[in-house]
C-alpha cells in the first residue's frame, strides 16, 4: 500500500486498436508495466511488437485511427483518461524523445526557437535566459557549436544533431518522466554512450524515471534497471534486466542468445520465421510458431502473466537457466585453424 506511491507511471492492461481494412486491428494487447521513481525501464521488441504504440499510449498521442479500448494509464497517482488530464503534463512533467527527430522538428522555425519555446512554457524566464539554458542543455549533450545549432533549421543539421536537439527539448523542464523512443538510433556508439549516460544520470536521481524504447539488447543491458520484452502487442516478460536476460521467456532468451553469440564472434542460433504483423490471426501464444519448446497447450491457450522468480512472464513453459542449451557453434577463427 505504502510503496504504491513510488510508482511514477503505471499502465494497467492497456489495449489499443487501429482501424484497418478489415476492421479494428489490435496493436497493444493488455500491456501492463510501471516505471518507479529512480529507475530506467527498457522496452525491447522487434518491428510491429507495439513499442512505439506503448510510448504514444502513455503520452495520449495515439495516431489518427488508433484508440485505447481498455485499460488505464496512471501518472503520479492521476489517471490520464481525457485529453484534459494531459494539459500541462507533456513538455513539462513528461518529456518525449520521438523516434524520427528531423520530422518532429518544425521546418519553418530555427531549432533554437523551438527549444526556447519549450523552456519558457515550463517556467517564467526571459528569452535571453531561456536561450542560455538551451545552449547549456545542448552543450551537456555533447554538441560542439551549440550557438550555431540554435540558429539552424532542422534540414541544416545532421540526424545526430536533430536527435540531440529533440533530447534537449525533452529534458528542457526537468521532467519527472522521460519517454524516449529509440533515442540513439543512427547515432555513433560513442555519442550513444554519452547521451544514454547523461539520460540515465538525470533520471535516476531525484525520484525521476524513464521509459527507454529500443530494439538493442545491449542498450538495455547497459543502461536499464528493468526491462519489458514485447512481442505481438503484448509484454511477454518483465523484470530486472539481469533476470529477464538469464532465464524465463524463450523469446527473450533467443534474442539474448543471438546478441551474445555475435559479441563472442560465434554463429548465432537464429529464431526461425518472422515476427507477426498486427492483424495476423493469432491463436494461443503468439510466439508458439517460432518457439522451440512450444506444445499443443501453447498453440491453443494464450498464457496469462505469471511470476517467474523476480519476473512476470507470459509463457506456459518458461526455461530455467540450467536447461538452456549452450549458445552458438565454434568460432570462425577456430574453424579456420582446424
Amino acid at each position: 500500500m505504502m510503496d504504491s506511491r513510488s510508482a511514477l507511471l503505471e499502465m494497467r492492461d492497456v489495449s489499443v486498436t487501429v482501424r484497418g481494412a478489415g476492421g479494428e486491428v489490435p496493436v497493444l494487447r493488455e500491456v501492463a508495466l510501471e516505471v518507479r521513481r529512480g529507475e530506467l525501464v527498457g522496452v525491447v521488441g522487434e518491428t510491429g511488437a507495439g513499442k512505439s504504440f506503448t510510448a504514444r499510449a502513455v503520452l495520449g498521442l495515439l495516431p489518427h485511427g488508433a484508440r485505447r479500448i481498455s485499460g488505464s494509464v496512471v501518472f503520479d497517482g492521476t489517471e490520464l483518461d481525457t485529453p484534459r488530464a494531459y494539459a500541462n503534463l507533456r513538455g513539462t512533467r513528461m518529456g518525449f524523445v520521438p523516434q524520427n527527430p528531423r520530422l518532429s522538428l518544425d521546418p519553418v522555425f530555427t531549432v533554437g526557437s523551438q527549444l526556447v519555446a519549450v523552456i519558457r512554457r515550463g517556467r517564467r524566464m526571459s528569452r535571453t535566459h531561456a536561450r542560455k539554458r538551451g545552449v547549456a542543455l545542448l552543450t551537456g549533450l555533447g554538441v560542439h557549436e551549440p550557438e550555431r545549432v540554435m540558429r539552424s533549421y532542422a534540414h541544416q543539421l545532421s540526424g545526430g544533431l536533430c536527435q540531440r536537439v529533440c533530447i534537449a527539448i525533452a529534458l528542457a523542464n526537468d521532467p519527472e518522466l522521460v519517454i524516449a523512443d529509440e533515442p540513439t538510433t543512427g547515432l555513433d556508439v560513442t555519442v550513444q554512450r554519452q547521451i544514454l549516460d547523461l539520460l540515465r544520470s538525470q533520471l535516476v536521481r531525484d525520484g525521476r524515471g524513464g521509459l527507454l524504447i529500443t530494439h538493442d539488447l545491449g542498450v538495455i543491458a547497459t543502461w536499464c534497471d528493468r526491462v519489458a520484452v514485447m512481442y505481438a502487442g503484448r509484454v511477454v516478460a518483465i523484470g530486472p534486466v539481469a533476470d529477464v536476460l538469464r532465464e524465463g521467456h524463450p523469446y527473450a532468451h533467443g534474442l539474448k542468445g543471438i546478441a551474445v553469440a555475435l559479441e563472442q564472434g560465434v554463429e548465432p542460433v537464429a529464431i526461425p520465421g518472422t515476427v507477426p504483423t498486427p492483424g495476423d490471426q493469432i491463436e494461443g501464444c503468439a510466439f508458439a510458431p517460432r518457439c522451440a519448446v512450444a506444445t499443443d497447450l501453447c498453440r491453443a491457450d494464450d498464457p496469462a502473466p505469471r511470476p517467474y522468480g523476480d519476473q512476470l512472464v507470459r509463457c506456459h513453459h518458461p526455461v530455467a537457466d540450467a536447461e538452456l542449451p549452450a549458445v552458438g557453434h565454434p568460432t570462425r577463427s577456430e574453424e579456420v585453424e582446424v
Partner: peptide
Amino acid sequence: PRVTAAPAGRQPDRARADGVSHRV
C-alpha cells in the same frame, strides 16, 4: 553496448532491483 559485459558506467544495484521485483 554489450549484453555480456558488465555495464561500464554503473554498477547494478542489487538491493533496489530485488525490492522492485516484489512490487511488480
